[in-house]
Design a protein around this nucleic acid. Structure first.
Lengths: 207, 207
DNA sequence: CAAATACGAAACGCAATAGTTCTGTATTTG
DNA sequence: CAAATACAGAACTATTGCGTTTCGTATTTG
């Protein structure tokens, strides 16, 4: 989403100060979390980052693009694989995966995540780029854990699988977006123990 | 949310044409559904409703107030009690309630509902007035059905009840907002049969 | 050192649109 | 009929905030 990566091969002149990128994206996320998408003006970002607006527009061609990159920075998915211990049972993996995806140990990060979900409704491009991306990631995260445990001779219909993969992300985002309440690890444990594991066991057991 | 109801006791002059209210609110909802909150300008509403802007501002003092009233009009909760057959088992009531709340038989209404959920993130007042109101209604709808069936000597912890009451609304709104897919009655049946009923039975059975 | 480019800061131009007022007409009460 | 108010439509005002440009300075290469 950052612009002009390909054309930055110019040799002469002062080079881009790459440390400005993170400062700008962080300021964007913090304004989003603090005051919502409403208060997110480029002027406010520039002021908070102590940066000229031109420095922002040299990197991103629109406010929408800026927010998309900021949201990606937020995303905890990069370090997912390294944090996730695959040497444990289904229950433990599900809990870990949901806790990582939704940053259950970091309330400030949750506020940002929720702010991003809200922001993603603001215009068409954000909706398309962010929501679909988030959904895809939720989905892949859950599938990667559930599939191996289902494959052992049992099957789930597509519809059943949909439901199973969506329960966690649905409950957690609903809670965040509609009630503003935080979601902690014990909330995730309840989802897994009271809904996901029983459903998995019952479906497997009945075939 | 409509303004000045108390001051409309003036006798002289042409009275407010109350039929304009519904035309305006309907146009608002349709623009919301068609093109999202972005394209919802007061000028567009006025044009679609074939109404002067002054006629709108005579009734609502801001775009936010207009949208709040339009959302309330959308709400299917008014006719909830009359549509809901309380002379049936828990399963049937749950399915009926969710189908009514989320308009599972009316795809256009669903588009509007989803548009309203998205719009509710647009500013602070909408968030406060609409989201909390929708959450309250989802919650009350589910509670009114579940409580009578739980009371018979069994108990649910507060946390368990939270989960149970939120499953349906969470999955349905998640589906609408993140994927844009419609939610039909068979989707609701899967939620009830594969998640809610098993949870209710297991919790009741274990005490 | 000179050319090229980035930096923060501030000023600027411009489009969108919320909300108001005007105009000529219609409706209602006294 | 006269006063009061509503109507649709259009013109108007004012603000907001995006994105550009300018300014004086700093950094880098040749």
């Amino acid at each position: 989403m950052e612009k002009g990566k390909e054309e930055q091969e110019s040799k002469r002149g002062r080079p881009l100060d790459l440390s400005r990128n993170k400062v700008i994206l962080t300021a964007t996320l913090e304004l989003l979390a603090e005051r919502g998408f409403d208060a997110l003006t480029i002027d406010a970002v520039a002021a908070k980052a102590k940066v000229g607006k031109a420095t922002i527009y040299r990197r991103w061609s629109s406010k929408t693009d800026l927010v998309i990159d900021a949201a990606s920075l937020m995303s905890p998915f990069l370090k997912m694989e390294e944090s996730l211990n695959r040497n444990q049972g289904l229950r433990g993996q599900l809990i870990d995966m949901l806790s990582i995806i939704f940053q259950c140990d970091d309330e400030k990060a949750q506020t940002m995540l929720t702010a991003i979900y809200n922001a993603a409704s603001a215009n068409e491009k954000l909706d398309k780029e962010l929501k679909h991306e988030f959904y895809r990631r939720h989905r892949e995260g859950m599938e990667s854990i559930i599939r191996p445990f289902i494959k052992k001779g049992h099957t789930l219909t597509e519809e059943e699988f949909d439901l199973l993969a969506d329960i966690g992300p649905a409950l957690i985002t609903y809670r965040g977006v509609f009630t503003g309440k935080p979601f902690d690890r014990s909330y995730v444990e309840r989802i897994v123990d009271l809904l996901m594991m029983p459903m998995i066991e019952s479906v497997i057991g009945s075939r």
